[in-house]
Nucleic acid binder design. Structure first.
Lengths: 226, 226
DNA sequence: ACCTGAACACCGTTCAAGT
DNA sequence: ACCTGAACACCGTTCAAGT
């Protein structure tokens, strides 16, 4: 599109879709998901609320654009290096996606709320399919495997993000583990003995290590190809 | 709405937490997530909006109770039968959970939005841990495996629900497949060749079969135990 | 084409009051 | 204890108008 607004007097051109997404993400990080209102974004940009409707049809389109922006923030180097084994590259992709999304817990909560059909989400899916094809999977298996991997990675991120306060900076991993263990400790032992026991045994629950472990189980399952 | 205008003047006792969750779920099914307002639920119950605050501290607590109600709707028989192999029982659990949650797409969208700490979610986690222990996993592996399974099952359900119109009855699977394929067909082939190709090869994308396939890959990975 | 002010039809939540 | 009416401080979106 990008209508070249040559020297004409007319409109002001103070906004761009990009700037709106930026402002929404800033608000999301600073004050959490429910602070992200059309009016709040507009105030952040110093414009009237309805100015946004020139660039997006409605609020949910803004939120989808925010998600797409973040989904595009994986490390491309993780995919490109042909010297690395395919499992390593998938690890790199998944871990960089998780790291970048968990840095914005408010946005991570939006991940599975709407279909991801933005350009960056499509590019990610395409890259994933290419990687799996390179790993030797045929078209059908690659499609299935990519869907499974997306489910795992996004599900894990969303589940982790749900436990974070979206208005606070993400606490260090040790604190998150401690919080999780405290929550498990609070579970009544008579009613849920095994759940309560998990507080004692699982020392690294909901962490990078659990994420990697799960990813490896999924990749093992894919290699087996049953 | 059965207003119990019974004799005594005192408190009316026209509501229960249960009735509020019922009303919220009805609204969710009929008109989608964004129609579920405190005022809407109250109107559904024939009561003033602020009456709900006697039973729930805020709106999000009502929504969490709705999610917990649905999470409790798995088939207990799927778990109980000791004659069935453990993989079969896990399949039964996952499939019944998926079927029941996808019947309420509006609610499924709330699944990963908040931590699931309701009593039914705890009971489900406990049942899952028990099942995995029965399958021979030690405490640590059972905890990790249960987390992985929860991520997969809830992630898959949420991702599927995101593509459904929450205000409409869930369409038959064939229609959902057709819609998915049409979406893939619309992807520009020059930019995303492999994604576009998926429209031709994946005939059962996003269906019960894909769900089962993914579940089997995950279970394969767990059996391998890396 | 792009932005504004004003308005419409809503929200969630609080509070004092009635029973 | 339970529910109400009224009010507060918000929403998303639309519309006519100005440039």
């Amino acid at each position: 599109m990008t209508t070249a607004q040559r020297g004409r007097p007319g409109p002001r051109r103070t906004l761009t879709a990009e700037a709106i997404v930026d402002a929404a993400l800033r608000l999301l990080d600073r004050r959490g998901a429910e602070a992200v209102s059309v009016r709040g974004i507009a105030a952040e940009l110093g414009v009237a609320p309805n100015a946004l409707y020139t660039y997006f049809p409605d609020k949910s389109a803004v939120l989808r654009a925010v998600v797409d922006r973040l989904v595009g923030e994986y490390d491309p180097a993780a995919l490109a290096d042909p010297a690395r084994p395919w499992r390593d590259r998938l690890h790199g992709l998944a871990l960089s996606l998780r790291a970048r999304l968990l840095a914005h817990p408010g946005a991570a909560g939006l991940l599975l709320g709407a279909p991801m059909d933005g350009p960056r989400a499509l590019a990610l899916g395409e890259a994933l399919l290419e990687l799996l094809a390179g790993a030797g999977l045929d078209e059908r298996d690659a499609a299935r495997a990519s869907y499974l991997l997306i489910v795992y990675v996004l599900g894990a991120i969303a589940l982790e993000a749900a436990e974070l306060d979206p208005a606070l900076p993400v606490p260090p991993e040790a604190d998150r583990v401690a919080a999780r263990r405290a929550a498990l400790d609070a579970v009544p032992e008579e009613t849920y003995p095994r759940t309560a026991a998990a507080a004692r045994t699982v020392s690294r629950y909901i962490t990078t290590e659990q994420f990697r472990w799960g990813l490896d189980r999924v990749l093992d399952g894919l290699a087996v190809k049953g």
